[in-house]
Design a protein around this nucleic acid. Structure first.
Length: 1012
RNA sequence: GCGAGGGUGCUGGAGUGGUCAAACAGGAUGGACUCAAAAUCCAUUAGCUUAGUGCUUACGCAGGUUCGAAUCCUGUCCCUCGCACCA
């Protein structure tokens, strides 16, 4: 019979939709099960068969869990912001909004045609203001909490995407979207999210997740936690010890210090005496002038005092707090040239400062930065708000490097908890000390050189005039290396001219710049121990650097010695086992304040700003007076303007109406941020929004989120291991700490589906022309056939190739089932089939539970193949149910036929009845099968149809169409009873007819056969 | 280089100590049906041999453990995926 699959599919898809079969609501009493597939980016090209496979894998699971009695939450949405829409807009001149809407509509249509059981009422799309309003909301919350910050740093830029990229989006030095495009390193100011704040928790929770091990290890490696020690190495650059003097201007204390004597007052204390002492030991002249009446500081009085000092082009000026305000004003007025200006916790806000108002109220002269070699501003994460504002004010006009330290408050003794301020010291003397991270302190005595990253921002500070040419040549050379060569690049480097001093041996070792050191891991410089590190070894061999053995082993010739051993050449640590030495040396360094224990992560903060249009606008404005100002929550969403000009850079920049705004604080003129958010921001929390997708007042209702989330089963590709999946985990934790969520992890279980390749075994792509279109397949064979075929092909997490014959086979099988149900007589079933059915129910249930769909399908095939022309209604129903998750349409159709009403989609999954399972029946069946096949063979060889040469041979000496006698053991008589066209005897049968004594050879399960 | 997972018949892919020449499917070959084809059904599909039981060779390669290995162990080669100079 012919079947109109398309008609059946349409019929049921319509019914499911009309009767809202898959729509769910919070039902406190029912156990929920949430299944979410990574939502797609709606591409204009529509779905191909590979997508169909991905969704079907989830759908089978959802249908199964639903039948198992769970309140199944299975929504779908669209990750609709993103570059392709914008690029299409530029190319075909269609607005991204239109393009996206069209693509989404097409997706929905296609997805519905696949027979997926989504609850479409929960749909969302990230490019709608109702959604991205909450992106902006989260951004502001993060900002408040200090989880978002803006920083100038070295970032990755893709020239094709025309935007910066997050670390996670750079793969092997290339853009994740453009495998042929090497990213450029640029120094830019960008927005970052402090994912590193959760590095430890992200790492620790991984083990509790039921995720594929592969993904778990990938994430662990990405976070890359390692324990080690940071050792301070003094760095010497003979060219740069050219400071004539250092002047430190203290801040302004409150009135209470007026009466205090020099011993008890604090304003010229905290780190000032310490730094003075340190510098004087290095024979640097230090002035720490006491300014007149600092509790009511007056600029001209201070100036009089200050002018007494010899400030010249080689001076370093340091200010603390309002001392900074003084220095900047003084530098502006006198137009003096100096070497360095260092502002420590600067202050420029009159209302909250201790000095007279006129002291602060002056215009900063921007030109001073042209007269100073280096400007540095120190601040702290826990500085007061006005202090932070002051930093921004100074930085905006005179620039300079901002160094934010942790828990230093206003850099007074109480705030810092110590008078030591080594960061300042190193800034004054020009990075005189570098902290070096190592996990091998046991080899410290074997350090024979240092290597600093060629990309390090402070590299040039180490380079002496003599070496400048060489270094520049080297930098040029490594820049021209193509991405391909990067893969097994030779380690090369160049001497910088500077030396480092080993803190324990006091040996002077050369500092090289090398292409194999990562700039932003550790401090960007490594201590090299060529005897015990392969990389260092190669480098040392190449440049003829000394190789000093410190762990006892054989002569080192071709390879470094990496393993264990006892220490040698290591002074008082000699003879120690190297593992033991690690601890001892670490303790020694800590005791002598030469180093500290350090945990180092590979994970970096997430760069979220993008210089593109089609994304969520970042909700801040830049005000000339107030600096960076967050947009008040009540003004959200900041809607992306429709009317923009595409083509040159970010269209938002040229949109005046969007850019020019009033400052929310001072009402003055301000500029809106034109960067948009990385679309991974959108996808970091969409699963939460599903639970309450229409809420206009909240991102989601707490009760709804708490019922439906976290996701029980998440399904998606492995390519997101270190991107989406880390961001989403971070988000969940951050929102938890902001009080929005109660759980720690978004996705309890994760399944990675495999990929569907084209018939040629290649990845499906338009350019290869091997794309299989689901619409066409469904037209030809029906969607159920396609689903059945795709899932039968391989384990769902393995990749597979599409094949036309394959789907024909599946289609045949389904037709057979339809035929069978059209002809089957409903009556009684025998014990055998009952046993088989129950056994298979048991197997299929666990197989689906464990995503072994292909094995489940094998069993289901076996089951249907064993059904006879008459079966009980119960057997038929249960069999259909087993098939339903895979082939939802035809099973609904057949269900209607035998049951008359209701949806099989909503029926209960069958339970296996253990009592009915009889293992022996199976074995018996096999024996019969074997005997039947033997008889078949004999008949063929002796019958009329002998067309093969073999059959002709075999016939010699045998009668045509002989009678067949079969002898079995008496207890097996019953087993073989049903084999037709033979004469069956038990070996001890009285009536036996056995001229050749065949019965003597009969063994258990092995009948004897005699032909007459 | 490191980490993870693999290598089974013509193909996809089951199988983790005997019941395995190896599920299930696809392909191929032969047969039944038919005037013929498609569809359907049946059989065969490592080699030799027998009516049948039998024998030989096989689960990347080479060894080992065992009464017995696709399955356990050791070494080795190859493939796929991920990270990539992380100190």
């Amino acid at each position: 019979m012919k079947y109109d699959f398309k008609k059946i599919e349409k019929k049921w898809q319509k019914k499911w939709e009309q009767e809202k079969v898959f729509e769910v609501e919070v039902e406190k009493r029912k156990k929920k099960y949430t299944i979410i597939e990574m939502f797609p980016y709606p591409s204009g090209e529509g779905l191909h068969m590979g997508h169909a496979l991905n969704y079907t894998i989830g759908d089978v699971f959802a249908r199964f869990k639903r039948m198992k009695g769970f309140n199944v939450f299975y929504p779908m949405g669209f990750d609709s912001f993103g570059l392709p829409a914008e690029n299409a807009a530029i190319k075909v001149k269609e607005h991204p909004k239109k393009y996206t809407q069209r693509a989404i509509n097409n997706y929905i249509k296609q997805q519905k045609a696949l027979g997926l059981s989504y609850d479409w009422s929960k749909i969302l799309s990230t490019s709608e203001p109702e959604y991205y309003k909450w992106n902006q909301f989260w951004f502001l919350k993060f900002l408040e909490k200090g989880l978002v910050y803006r920083k100038k740093s070295f970032v990755n830029w893709c020239s094709k995407c025309k935007t910066v990229l997050a670390n996670e989006q750079v793969q092997g030095g290339r853009c994740w979207r453009h495998e042929d495009t090497e990213v450029e390193i640029k120094q830019l100011e960008q927005w970052f999210i402090k994912t590193t704040a959760y590095a430890d928790e992200l790492l620790d929770c991984i083990d509790n997740l039921k995720w594929p091990d592969k993904i778990k290890t990938m994430q662990k490696n990405w976070i890359g936690k390692s324990h080690g020690i940071e050792i301070d190495f003094e760095v010497e650059n003979s060219d740069k010890t050219t400071i004539s003097n250092v002047v430190i201007v203290h801040g302004c204390p409150g009135d209470e210090e007026k009466a205090m004597n020099p011993k008890t007052r604090t304003y010229d204390k905290h780190w000032i005496p310490w730094i003075k002492n340190k510098l004087e030991k290095k024979e640097i002249k230090v002035f720490t002038p006491l300014m007149p009446e600092p509790w009511k500081a007056n600029y001209s009085q201070w100036k009089k005092e200050f002018d007494k000092l010899n400030v010249n082009g080689k001076s370093v000026l340091i200010g603390h707090s309002c001392g900074c305000a003084f220095l900047v004003r003084w530098l502006g007025e006198t137009k003096k040239k100096i070497k360095k200006l260092i502002l420590v916790a600067p202050w420029k806000i009159a209302q909250s400062g201790n000095a007279e108002e006129e002291f602060y109220n002056y215009e900063i002269d921007e030109s001073i930065k042209s007269r100073i070699d280096e400007i540095v501003i120190f601040t702290s994460n826990d500085e007061e708000e006005d202090g932070k504002k002051s930093v921004k004010i100074f930085n905006k006009l005179i620039g300079g490097e901002i160094i934010e330290l942790k828990n230093h408050g206003h850099f007074t003794l109480g705030d810092m908890g110590t008078e030591e301020f080594p960061e300042l010291l190193s800034k004054i003397v020009g990075n005189k000390s570098w902290p070096i991270f190592t996990t091998r302190p046991d080899t410290l005595f074997g350090v024979t050189f240092m290597v600093v990253s060629a990309q390090h921002p402070n590299l040039m500070e180490l380079v002496t005039d003599n070496q400048k040419k060489d270094v520049e040549k080297f930098l040029k050379k490594i820049k021209s290396v193509s991405a391909k060569e990067m893969e097994n690049l030779e380690k090369i480097g160049v001497f910088t001219g500077s030396y480092a001093i080993n803190p324990v041996t006091k040996n002077k070792v050369p500092i090289y710049s090398g292409n194999f050191v990562v700039a932003d891991y550790g401090s960007g410089m490594v201590m090299a121990v060529p005897a015990h590190d392969q990389r260092d070894f190669e480098f040392a061999k190449k440049y003829g650097i000394e190789i000093k053995q410190v762990i006892n082993c054989e002569e080192i010739n071709k390879k470094a010695h990496i393993g264990k051993g006892k220490l040698i050449n290591s002074d008082k640590f000699n003879g120690l086992d190297n593992e033991k030495a690690k601890q001892e040396i670490t303790n020694f360094l800590i005791k002598n304040k030469l180093g500290r224990k350090k945990v180092q992560y590979k994970l970096k903060d997430w760069l979220v700003s993008r210089q593109r249009y089609w994304g969520t606008p970042i909700p801040v404005v830049y005000c000339d007076k107030c600096g960076i100002v967050p947009v008040p929550e009540k003004n959200l969403p900041i809607v992306l303007p429709d009317k923009v000009k595409f083509g040159k850079g970010n269209p938002l920049e040229t949109n005046k109406a969007f850019v020019s705004v009033k400052c929310p604080i001072c009402r003055g003129n301000a500029k809106r941020e034109t960067d948009t958010m990385d679309t991974f921001f959108d996808s970091s929390w969409y699963y939460l929004r599903y639970s309450d997708n229409k809420n206009r007042n909240l991102a989601f209702d707490k009760k709804k989120v708490e019922y439906w989330l976290p996701v029980d089963q998440y399904i998606g590709g492995a390519e997101h291991a270190c991107m989406h999946l880390i961001y989403a985990r971070f988000f969940t934790k951050a929102l938890r700490d902001l009080g929005f969520l109660k759980f720690d992890e978004p996705f309890l279980k994760l399944f990675n589906q495999g990929m569907l390749h084209g018939p040629d075994g290649e990845k499906m792509s338009k350019s290869k022309g091997n794309i299989i279109n689901p619409d066409e397949v469904s037209e030809k064979y029906g969607m159920d056939s396609a689903r059945f075929f795709l899932l039968a092909l391989a384990l769902p997490d393995k990749s597979r190739d599409w094949s036309e014959e394959g789907i024909q086979g599946s289609s045949k099988f389904l037709k057979k089932i339809l035929d069978y149900f059209n002809n089957v007589k409903i009556g009684k079933s025998n014990v055998k089939i009952e046993s088989k059915l129950n056994k298979i129910i048991k197997e299929v249930t666990t197989q689906i539970e464990n995503f072994k769909y292909n094995l489940a399908i094998i069993k289901i095939r076996d089951l249907f193949n064993s059904l006879s022309s008459e079966e009980s209604k119960d057997v038929l129903e249960k069999s259909l149910k087993l098939l339903h998750p895979f082939c939802p349409h035809i099973t609904e159709e057949l269900w209607e036929k035998i049951k008359g009403k209701g949806f099989i989609s909503l029926s209960r999954w069958p339970e296996a009845d253990e009592k009915k399972i009889d293992e022996n029946l199976d074995k018996q069946e096999e024996l019969i099968k074997k005997l039947k096949s033997d008889i078949e063979k004999i008949k063929k060889l002796t019958g009329h149809h002998r067309r093969t040469p073999r059959a002709r041979n075999a016939l010699q000496g045998a009668k045509k169409n002989p009678k067949i006698y079969v002898y079995v053991l008496p207890n097996e008589l019953k087993t073989y009873q049903e084999v037709e066209e033979i004469n069956l005897y038990a070996v001890n049968d009285k009536n036996k007819y056995d001229p050749e004594n065949k019965s003597k050879k009969v063994k258990p399960n092995r009948p004897g056969i005699y032909l007459e």
